[in-house]
Amino acid sequence: MVQQTVVDETRRPPAIVAVEGVVKRFGRFTALNDINLSVRAGEKIVLCGPSGSGKSTLIRCINHIETHDSGRIVVDGVELTDRMGDINTVRREVGMVFQSFNLFPHLSIVENCMLAPMKVRGLSRAQAHERARGFLRKVRIHDQADKYPGQLSGGQQQRVAIARALCMQPKIMLFDEPTSALDPEMVKEVLDIMVELARDGMTMVCVTHEMGFAREVADRVVFMDHGAIVEEADPETFFRAPRTERARDFLGQIIH
């Protein structure tokens, strides 16, 4: 029972991510049950839902960190399968930001941002350095470039993680609960960066419970429960008048 906003299909940009009938099981537990979702270039999608609803699993499947059991996932024109030769050609176009930052602790901030552009994109050291400085400035952390991740606060680390992903100049950015591990006073600095990124036209899929963020930037809110997409609507509709009981319960729990 997924309702979609009716728009003239021909005027929309093509889907950069297409998820069709995807099923993912962990042993007997079905984490994703027949998921269909398409993301068009430039679109911002917020995935929300109670914990264990499969939203993180879904975005981890989109860059093949988890492998799906059946169905199809097509990213930027390439179908993700177990047998594909080089998954990394897809991954380099898909940036990912994790809940726990996952910066490389043994590399300085600027080296964190330079490694993949140099080794994967083949940039020279000078080019990678220049690009890293640029994106670190964008996330307003360029004055810390030579420090190590352990010397930064959580909010700063997450901003570096965003800059690190951007240095690959991806076509799409995935955010897996980017603010859930942060102290409350640091949430805003990360969300501000994400809002700016959205304004720049980046295609984004965000798993987040930050409803203010969802209202501000999302084109669509996708609500998941028990491994299925339960409701999909523009944020205004979703927050004002959720159609399903489960979405109403969920919103009741997170909005005090």
Binding site: N63, I65, N88, T89, R91, R92, V94, G95, M96, F98, S100, N102, L103, F104, P105, H106, L115, A116, K119, V120, A161, R164, A165, M168
Partner: peptide
């Protein structure tokens, strides 16, 4: 942490590059 490998993969680093630049330098320390 598993997140180190995941972050490296997400950046498009091959398994070899992940071991060479991320895993082994940290493990040896």
């Amino acid at each position: 942490p598993k997140g180190q490998t995941e972050a490296a993969s997400a950046l498009g680093l091959s398994p070899y590059l992940t071991y060479r630049h991320i895993i082994v330098p940290q493990a040896l320390r």
